[in-house]
């Protein structure tokens, strides 16, 4: 099978790749680009652990074929820091104790980032609703919601 040439802007870096037509974006990020921050948990779109931002929109990268997003800007958890400075959401997740095993964390943070990017001051209800896109097995969500709330107030 022929490969397909795909250009992406991943975390502000242009990359050109030859990908399989049946390769998911999650595979491309993890296997080709070694960006393993996005996790594979259910692989069927149910859990959100593989969430990345595609042109700013949170998406389950396990459900996307890489050729579909030709030319897109992709932000993964590895691209959130600004130099040494953490993104406020990353800082808040740490300070509020919203991280336990960490496997859902990158998807959670990116989902929250997209929310705050489109709505700077969401109501708590919106936060809860939006964060209900992702499954966490450890925290009971309370500190995750608090971390997002706290960031939105800054």
């Amino acid at each position: 099978m022929k490969t397909i040439k795909v250009m992406l802007n991943v975390n502000n870096e242009k990359v050109t790749l030859q990908v399989k037509p049946y390769e998911t974006l999650l595979e491309t990020l993890r296997e080709r680009l070694s960006l393993t921050g996005a996790k594979e948990s259910c692989s069927l779109g149910s859990c959100g652990a593989c969430t990345v931002l595609v042109n700013g929109t949170p998406m389950r990268s396990c459900l996307i074929l890489t050729p579909e997003v030709e030319g897109a800007s992709i932000t993964t958890i590895e691209g959130l820091k600004n130099g040494e400075k953490l993104h406020p959401l990353q800082q808040a997740f740490m300070e509020k104790g919203a991280v336990q095993c960490g496997f859902c964390t990158s998807g959670m943070i990116l989902t929250a980032k997209a929310l705050l990017d489109r709505n700077k001051k969401p109501e708590k209800r919106d936060i809860v609703k939006t964060m209900s896109s992702n499954i966490c097995r450890c925290t009971g969500y309370k500190k995750i919601i608090e971390a997002v709330e706290e960031t939105s107030k800054k």
């Binding site: 993890r30 921050g37 996790k39 594979e40 958890i77 590895e78 990353q90 740490m94 960490g102 496997f103």
Partner: peptide
């Protein structure tokens, strides 16, 4: 004291490696 967990920096930056991440 309510201290920031020492493992959380790696986890919020995507740098924490889990078994499937190893190559």
């Amino acid at each position: 004291k309510r201290v920031i967990r020492s493992d959380s920096y790696a986890k919020v930056t995507g740098g924490a490696l889990y078994t499937a991440d190893l190559k």
